[in-house]
Amino acid sequence: MLSESRREKILENSEKLIIDYIKPNSRVLDLGCGEGALLEKLQAGKNVRAVGIEIDEKNVLTCISKGLSVCQGNIDEGLTDYADKSFDYIIINNTLQQIFKPEYVINEMRRVGKIIIIGMASFTFWKIRLSLLFHGKLPKTAFYQYEWYNTPNIRVISVKDFKIFADAHNIEILDFYGNVKNNFYKLPINIANLISKYCIFICR
């Protein structure tokens, strides 16, 4: 499927962007690390001290078998015991849409991490807008493939919504990237809000 491969490509490039951004020898926490693909690359290429948090036992076992440090747990409560600023970077890539308490989690990320990196699908991509307008039902796209009744994605967020959230919470946006086709560019927020399926906020 075209949308499937586009999605994979975008996610792969989002990981590349994040990896490039992270300085060697730093301490990194990846929330919702899945099978640990990002952690593995960070550890191999940048000598980073990386830790993941992941809820699924199978994924946790896969991470451990790769020699990665991972803590099984729910992100909604997973950061409580980490000391202030104990990580140089905290990443949440393609996971924010699945958590119950994003406001709490983002505040916790800022407390525990020096820099936080948020990668997420944007719901205001123009095709989604048109689909809603013309079909009058929930759109299905590369990042929204499920039905309303079986989707793990319990939240829809847009680039603009996140910007409004950031301003209201005094979150400083250090860098912002939106995708055009497979690649990421530094785009103005209003443009990305219309043309990007996926975006990355780097904040403090």
Binding site: R49, S69, V70, C71
Partner: peptide
């Protein structure tokens, strides 16, 4: 176990935790 894990986290110790099914 989580009590142990959380106390280790607070001390910046590299901890791996799994709740095996």
């Amino acid at each position: 176990s989580k009590m142990i894990v959380n106390a280790l986290k607070s001390q910046n110790i590299d901890v791996t935790f799994c709740e095996v099914n």
